[in-house]
Amino acid sequence: MNPSFPAAPIVQRVAEPTDANIRDLVYGFYDRVRADPLLGPVFDTTLAGRWDDHLPKMCTFWASLVLGAKQYRGNVQQAHQPLEGIEPQHFSRWLYLFLDTVESRYEPAAAIRFMEPALRIAQSLQLSRFGWDYTIPAEQQALLERIAPRRRPRDDEPHDSHDPHASARPRGEPFPARIIGKTQDD
């Protein structure tokens, strides 16, 4: 997904998420987070001595989102508000590591079930932290361009017919919701 970070090792990709493979995904992802020079220190500071509580909670969270288990009880925004020093590049790295880990473990139709909520969560957290007018980091925009299928714009959406890139890329926004924020081109 991004050549500046090492890719996740490919394991046997599965077609359907289950509690067991979601657990493997979560633990594999957080192994990468902990080893990452940008994210590792943030997570280690925040979760010092609490990893054994956090990881099962994340398994429950993702099972609730992907399998509809409805067992997770918590507030994602509230849980992330106290994190100090978080910048846009942290979200870009988190997204890269998560989406790459998902892609290495799931067939595309199953992977999308994780990718859509991950993108919504990242956007929601970025909006709450940086406001409606933040600039999406270039590496995150590149990641979105690569993995996010594009929708056609609605008839009532404005579009720029003078955009020199208009014929080179599909029009519209990445799924599942419009990404709010300015791109590097804006």
Rank of each mutant, 00 (worst) to 15 (best):
G28F: 02
W62L: 00
F130L: 12
E173H: 12
E84C: 09
L119R: 15
Y96H: 15
Q12H: 10
V76W: 11
K70A: 10
A109P: 12
R129I: 11
Y106A: 15
R152L: 06
V42N: 05
G74C: 07
G85E: 11
V14G: 01
E116M: 05
D100P: 11
P9L: 06
D160Y: 14
N75D: 11
R73E: 05
D133P: 09
F91T: 02
H80E: 02
P9C: 02
P9Q: 07
V66T: 04
V26D: 00
V26G: 00
F175V: 03
Y96K: 10
A7I: 05
E116W: 04
L55W: 06
R178W: 06
A35K: 14
H80R: 01
S4P: 13
W51T: 13
P9K: 05
A168H: 10
L97N: 14
R154L: 14
Q12A: 14
M1P: 08
H80K: 04
A69C: 02
F130T: 11
Q77L: 07
R129P: 08
Q77C: 04
P108E: 09
F29G: 00
Y27N: 03
A138K: 11
A177N: 01
P3Y: 04
G28M: 02
Q71W: 01
A148R: 02
F91L: 08
D52N: 13
A35F: 09
A109C: 12
R150N: 02
M1W: 09
I136M: 04
L99N: 11
H162R: 13
S161V: 10
A7P: 11
D163N: 07
P56Y: 08
S104V: 08
P108T: 10
A109Y: 12
T18Y: 10
H80V: 02
P88V: 07
A138N: 06
P117A: 00
G68T: 05
N21F: 07
L99Y: 09
L125M: 10
E87V: 15
Q12S: 12
R113L: 15
L144T: 00
H162A: 15
Y72K: 04
A122N: 08
Q81V: 14
F61C: 09
S167W: 11
Q71C: 01
D31M: 06
G28S: 07
P17S: 05
A63T: 01
S161D: 14
L83S: 06
H54K: 03
N75T: 03
Y106H: 13
S64F: 06
L65E: 04
A63Q: 01
I10A: 13
E103D: 12
P153G: 02
Q77D: 05
S64K: 00
Y96W: 13
P176T: 02
W132D: 14
F114M: 07
R169V: 13
S104L: 06
H165Q: 14
L99I: 14
D24F: 01
Y106S: 14
Q12C: 11
I147G: 00
P3E: 05
A177E: 03
C59I: 09
D19A: 05
